[in-house]
Amino acid sequence: MQNLIEQYRQTVNAAVRDQSRLRIAGSGSKSFYGRATQGETLDVTAYRGIISYEPTELVITARAGTPLVEIEAALAERRQMLAFEPPHFGSGATLGGCIASGLSGPRRAYAGAVRDYVLGVRMMDGKGCVLNFGGQVMKNVAGYDVSRLLAGSLGTLGLLLDVSLKVLPVPAAEVTLRFEMNESDAITAMNRWAAQPLSLSATCYCDGVLTVRLSGASAAVRAVREKLGGESVENAAEFWRMVGEQQHEFFQTATPLWRLSVPPSTPMIAGKQLIEWGGALRWLVSDESAESLRALVAALGGQATLFRSAQAHDAPFHPLSPALLQVHRRLKNSFDPHGIFNVGRMYSEF
């Protein structure tokens, strides 16, 4: 593996020398997300494998090219899991892509996001230097929290090499319940239930049905189930997988798919939607213009991302304020002074 790192370093050095750009690539499962980026492909799938996994320490460290399925299988063997339930969007999805995209799945509102579980990273910056941030321990406030900053940075700050993640035990019991109700009542229910100790671990509203997952100790799940009522869902794991992987029929469309992130108690928004994360994530299928959607969502205190669309869009992500954009540019310059990694993948400006 040291040879591979040496190869990556040479590629980076050559790009610096030639003033060319690199496009970091794993399996390509999330290449639809964000802006297209130019440059020579730096394929990192060969840099793979679990480096260490200690169930009693609740920590796994793996190379960025490791397929997520391999990590999840190793964890499942010890009845542990990635609590943020990352979407794969393809059978080859890698750990590096999972961290770089920063996308989390159905459990996000209740267990936290990718970045909440990142404990440490080893990375290569835009000068070819290998740097270590964070570590393999739960609590670490030495220096700035660069490892969490890298989650969701879409490879624009550097090349991820090794990542350490906190893992959690698989809940002792899980049950999924469905309730027929209208959208407005569902939003209220998701918020009111989240304010009570009910062991919620996922929520989804679509087409007049609110689906809710409870996770925890067997006795607790049993008690909450009796309290809430509803109808038990068979084959629930498959249901949540279909939602997380966007294989649910809601997502089968050629119309642009918008990801509206709003405060969870935001009232109903017009349009065809699937709601997740207790009301905080509204998937919207719509042909409306980016400007009008963004104005609407910004007024609600949220952001709108064009998640999937048949036609490339120049600004899929919600625009940054001028002050924030300036900080982003400077940070990009700190990590990647020659501007070689995934330039323009997130915003056209850096």
């Binding site: 700035y144 900053l149 992130s261 994530l281 205190g301 949220g302």
Partner: peptide
Amino acid sequence: SESLDAAGYDLLALFNG
């Protein structure tokens, strides 16, 4: 953000600590 995502880099994480 008061929602669960924010645009751009996770500067919130960077500010903590």
